[in-house]
Amino acid sequence: MNVLSATGEALVLIGTFFYFLSALGLIRMPDVYNRMQTSTKSATLGSLGVIIGTGLWAVGMGHSVAWIVQTVVVATFILLTNPISAHALIRGAYRSGIPLWNGSVVDKYGEHLEAKAEAAENEKDEGDGE
C-alpha cells in the first residue's frame, strides 16, 4: 500500500460519498429546479473524485501511466458536458411549464419572457420560433 494508491482510494471514497449526497438531494428537495441544483454539482464532483482516484489507485498498484491519462480524459469530458445537460434539462423543464416551488422569492425569467412576447406581439405575429 503506497502513497499513490492510498490517495486514489481516499479520492474514490470521497467521490462515492458525493454520489450518495447527490442522490439524497434528489430525494429531499421540493421541486425539480432545486433537485437539479443539488444533484448536478455533487454528481460532477463525485465523478471527478471517483474517476481520477481510480487512475491514481491503478498507477499505485503497478499498472502503466496510461491509466491516469485516460481517466483524466474521461473526467474532463464529464466536467465539460455535465453542466450542459443540466442547463438543457432545466431550460426544458421551465419551458414545459413546471412551476417554481411555493417558497421561491423572485422570477426574473418569467418577466423577461412575458416582456419579449409582448414586444413580439406589438410588432407582428412571429409564430414558430426555434
Binding site: Y19, L26, T40, A43, L89, G92
Partner: peptide, 14 residues
C-alpha cells in the same frame, strides 16, 4: 424523472 436518469448515467460512468 429525467434528472434522475441524468444522475444515474453519471454514476454509471464512474
Amino acid at each position: 424523472r429525467l434528472v434522475a436518469v441524468d444522475i444515474m448515467t453519471t454514476i454509471t460512468t464512474g
